[in-house]
Computed example of a mutant assay.
Amino acid sequence: MTVTAEVIAVAADGAHRFAKPRRNEIRLIEGLGVEGDAHLGVTVQHLSRQKKDPGAVNLRQVHLIHAELFDELAAKGFAVAPGELGENVTVRGIDLLGLPEGAVLALGNAARVRVTGLRNPCKQIDRFQKGLMAALLNKAADGTLVRKSGVMAVVVASGVVRAGDAVRIVSAPAAFVALPVV
Rank of each mutant, 00 (worst) to 15 (best):
G98D: 00
V161L: 13
V181D: 13
T116F: 01
G108F: 05
G55V: 10
K139M: 06
V91F: 03
V170G: 03
R114Q: 15
G98Y: 01
R60Y: 01
N120C: 10
A175L: 15
V10N: 12
A74E: 14
L105P: 14
N109C: 04
V161S: 10
A5L: 09
T43F: 04
P21V: 06
R23N: 07
N24W: 04
S149E: 14
R17P: 07
L40Y: 08
S149D: 14
I26H: 09
H16E: 01
K20D: 11
G33V: 05
D13R: 04
F176G: 08
A175Q: 14
R114C: 12
V151F: 07
A141T: 09
H39L: 10
A141W: 00
G159R: 00
L85W: 07
S171R: 02
D95C: 06
V146Q: 01
P82H: 02
P82G: 12
V80W: 06
E25D: 07
A74R: 13
Q129L: 10
A15D: 03
N58Y: 01
G86M: 07
G55L: 14
V146I: 14
R60F: 01
L97Y: 12
A153Y: 02
N24L: 09
K20F: 04
T43A: 03
K130C: 06
R23H: 15
A175S: 13
H39T: 10
A67D: 14
F176R: 14
G102N: 04
I169W: 06
T2C: 05
R114F: 06
K51T: 15
G117E: 01
D53T: 02
Q61M: 05
K76Q: 15
R127M: 14
A157G: 05
L145V: 12
A38G: 13
V181A: 08
V115W: 09
Q124H: 12
L99C: 06
L96I: 15
N109T: 09
D165H: 10
T2S: 08
D53V: 02
V146P: 05
A79Y: 05
R114A: 14
F78W: 10
L96E: 13
G31Q: 09
T2K: 13
P54W: 12
V146Y: 03
R147N: 13
K139L: 08
K20A: 04
E87S: 09
A172M: 15
P180L: 05
I29Q: 12
A81S: 08
V10Y: 01
M152R: 07
E72C: 00
L99E: 00
E72N: 03
G41T: 01
C122P: 12
